[in-house]
Computed example of a mutant assay.
Amino acid sequence: MEFVRIGIIGLGNMGSSHCIQIHIEHKVPGLKLAAVCDISEERREWAGREFPGVPVFEHATDMYQSGLIDAVLVAVPHYDHPSLSIEAFSHGLHVLVEKPAGVYTKQVLMMNAAAAKSDKVFCIMYNQRTNPVYQKLRELVQDGELGELKRVVWIVTDWYRPQAYHDSGSWRSTWKGEGGGTLINQNPHNLDLLQWILGMPKRLRSFVSFGKYYNIEVEDDVTAYLEYANGASGVYITSTGESPGTNRLELSGDRGKIVVENNKITFHRNRIPEREHNRSNTEPFKRPEAWVCDIPVVGTNEDHVGIMKSFTQAILKGTPLLSPGEEGIHGLTISNAIHYSTWTNDWVDLEQFNHDHFHELLLERIQHSKVEKKLSQKVVDVTGTY
């Protein structure tokens, strides 16, 4: 195979952007836009004008069965990510799915099982993994530069979205249309990075507000307390209702403290580990000697293009994926657990997460969702059609 023929399902903001990057800008060597698909006649007509010669389909199954593609990029509303991916695997296609992997873990576990059975390349669009800042941070942690983790604090409140954003699409900010608020829409990348860098928390307790700042039914303010197997603790704070906001990640360990802010890494490095200092020191107020180090970061953030390159090379050459699709379950488990903890007013064990009960509670909220009222407003939605 000299190149990969890809079909894109969903010509909203992200799907359209991917089409342009592949077909017009030629940013992904070895990847060819071979077909597109959308249930919207308007978007299909747009694709016909913008990409003459590229076949346009209304239904995903027809594109899957066409023989025109080797792989598919799924860029549709969240609930449909797993079902369309599972169907693609059944037709022998490689799959690149947009984030999040799905809305609830039960459906994503089924998608992962289908991927394993298919033996096809499965990738997820966690494009923040291409950021050299987070790659370097992960390297520092995994190489032991920070030592034993003590605490993580991530404040992510720069996801500001006004009411006009929530009203811009019929599916937005509803349980039935989107499956959640800031956790399922803005934060999947952050939650993925959290587990990619540090591993999964063991349990958590959350305090989530729904419609605190806006006329919406889903969450717009979140505080979660995390505990890790080694005894380390963490706090994750996010909101769409603060401006100006903050994006500050702080990791504390035996060998010092690492702060990531404004796309820069600062390492407050202890000359000797704190625990070693504690054992040997005899002076009541003496701290370990610490050096403030600006960590050099080399490389370019290729964003979505970087993930598509990784996906293409994995198919053509068998190179390891930067963002394996099966790993989408991890960040989603944290997201679901944060909802679940508040809904049940209790701690949640992530290693024994109750996938079925979470799904039941989500279905109750879907049944009472206000998406029908939003649909009656006849707002324009070009972000999630397929």
Results as ranks from 00 to 15, higher is better:
184 I>E: 01
152 V>C: 03
370 K>C: 06
275 R>N: 02
326 E>T: 13
196 W>C: 01
298 V>G: 03
149 L>Q: 10
378 K>E: 00
363 L>Y: 12
354 N>S: 02
235 V>K: 15
48 G>L: 10
314 A>Q: 03
344 T>P: 01
217 E>W: 15
71 A>W: 10
249 L>A: 04
77 P>V: 11
59 H>M: 13
259 V>F: 01
246 T>W: 05
288 P>I: 10
342 T>R: 06
109 L>E: 04
289 E>K: 09
196 W>G: 02
298 V>W: 11
189 H>Y: 04
238 T>M: 03
133 V>I: 11
140 L>M: 15
316 L>I: 12
30 G>R: 05
107 Q>K: 15
222 V>M: 04
137 L>D: 00
43 R>S: 08
275 R>E: 03
71 A>H: 10
230 N>P: 06
297 V>I: 06
81 H>L: 06
218 V>F: 07
189 H>I: 01
227 E>G: 01
75 A>M: 12
251 L>D: 14
60 A>S: 09
101 A>D: 01
195 Q>Y: 12
259 V>M: 07
41 E>S: 15
144 G>T: 00
227 E>D: 02
324 P>T: 06
76 V>W: 08
378 K>P: 00
166 H>R: 05
306 G>Y: 12
130 T>D: 00
229 A>I: 09
8 I>N: 08
122 F>N: 03
301 N>E: 12
201 P>S: 07
198 L>Y: 01
26 H>E: 14
268 H>P: 02
137 L>W: 02
73 L>M: 09
14 M>E: 03
17 S>Y: 03
102 G>T: 06
286 K>L: 06
308 M>G: 01
283 E>M: 06
269 R>S: 00
247 N>H: 13
69 I>P: 02
288 P>S: 10
5 R>W: 04
38 D>I: 04
236 Y>T: 02
373 K>A: 11
123 C>Q: 13
193 L>M: 08
278 N>S: 14
1 M>R: 14
251 L>C: 14
258 I>Q: 02
18 H>S: 06
209 S>V: 10
77 P>Y: 08
178 E>G: 05
254 D>L: 12
75 A>R: 07
257 K>A: 08
317 K>G: 05
191 L>P: 01
96 L>T: 12
292 V>P: 00
199 G>A: 06
363 L>N: 11
265 I>G: 09
181 G>R: 03
115 A>I: 05
1 M>I: 13
342 T>C: 07
341 S>V: 12
336 N>H: 14
113 A>Q: 15
145 E>I: 05
180 G>A: 05
347 W>C: 09
200 M>P: 09
43 R>N: 09
261 E>C: 11
118 S>M: 00
383 T>P: 00
300 T>M: 10
357 H>F: 07
241 G>I: 13
31 L>E: 07
102 G>P: 03
179 G>V: 13
386 Y>A: 09
3 F>S: 15
110 M>P: 00
175 W>S: 07
128 Q>E: 11
228 Y>T: 01
88 A>F: 13
177 G>V: 14
39 I>C: 09
145 E>N: 08
